[in-house]
């Protein structure tokens, strides 16, 4: 494992890949997503854990997404996701609407090498009615107890942003433990990091419990401010001015194209080039 550039990292996501990404609070690899857009990746099957915002909206707006498996797409306090709404109305993406714990459960099945996972709730919803890949079984230990079973979600690639990685490919995630689930479930994991350390993160017992070991990690890229225009933990807030402009502009394809151009000139530009 060596530390690669962001563009090189993005090249590791093939067209048509099932790509799993993190929610905003967990660490979004926006610089890498912009590099994917610049490269012109096509036909992604995007899985959001369990929700997403700007990253998904921009990938959809740029025409990179064929299928979207999600529990919700929103830009939070800034408003509804404009490209997502447009794509739903036009039918240009295939939707697999889910509910948050179902996405976790599908990944947990993959993590355990199981074909499926049972989950409470969901029965009698239109979410279930529109998911022919989800089944209902009778609890084998208690008849009359109907329960939903969900197939494993096995992503080709997991992509997210972390505070710190070392040169061996060990990745520190702090309390964002669901990133561990992404890495365990996916066939390969690629990561952008705010900082790269020369230390070996596994040698520090105080934080090794919050480290995804290199065993799961295929590549790391150094990407300072790699979540911009989104915020990243306590390191920096979302770029509110940019986000507010995006919400308005991206309501039209031409406006979105302008915002994408601006993003490609932003702090991540040098990284994504």
């Amino acid at each position: 494992m060596s530390v690669v550039g962001v563009a090189e990292l993005a090249a590791m996501v093939p067209d048509g890949a099932k790509l799993v990404i993190a929610k905003d609070e967990s660490g979004v690899a926006m610089a890498a997503a912009l590099a994917l857009i610049r490269r012109g990746v096509k036909n992604l099957h995007l899985v959001t854990v369990p929700v997403s915002g700007l990253e998904t909206d921009m990938l959809i707006g740029a025409g990179c997404v064929a299928t979207l498996e999600t529990s919700a797409i929103t830009l939070g306090e800034f408003g509804l996701a404009p490209c997502f709404s447009r794509a739903v109305k036009s039918g240009s993406i295939k939707l697999k609407d889910a509910t948050c714990p179902a996405i976790y459960a599908g990944l947990q099945a993959a993590q355990k090498g199981l074909p499926f996972m049972p989950l409470r709730g969901i029965l009698e919803t239109d979410v279930l009615a529109n998911r022919p890949d989800w089944k209902v079984i009778d609890n084998p230990f208690e008849s009359g107890d109907r329960i939903v079973v969900l197939p494993a979600i096995v992503p080709d690639v997991a992509l997210f942003h972390v505070p710190l990685a070392d040169r061996h490919g060990n990745v520190f995630i702090g309390r964002q433990r669901e990133l561990m689930l992404l890495a365990h479930a996916a066939r390969s994991t690629i990561v952008t990091a705010e900082h790269i350390t020369d230390d070996n993160l596994l040698e520090d017992e105080a934080r090794s419990g919050s480290v995804i070991p290199a065993l799961y990690v295929n590549a790391v890229a150094h990407a300072p401010r790699g979540a911009w225009p989104l915020g990243f933990g306590d390191a920096y807030p979302a770029d509110a001015a940019w986000m507010s402009r995006y919400i308005t502009e991206a309501r039209t394809p031409a406006g979105f194209a302008r915002m994408l151009e601006a993003a490609l000139q932003g702090p991540g530009a040098r990284l994504a080039a």
Binding site: P50, T70, V88, K89, A98, T99, A102
Partner: peptide, 19 residues
């Protein structure tokens, strides 16, 4: 569904937590 006139974010955890 799916090509709705107005689309909101999605169901979040509601389909589960409501139960």
């Amino acid at each position: 569904y799916p090509q709705m006139e107005v689309r909101w974010p999605g169901s979040f955890g509601s389909a589960y937590l409501y139960y």
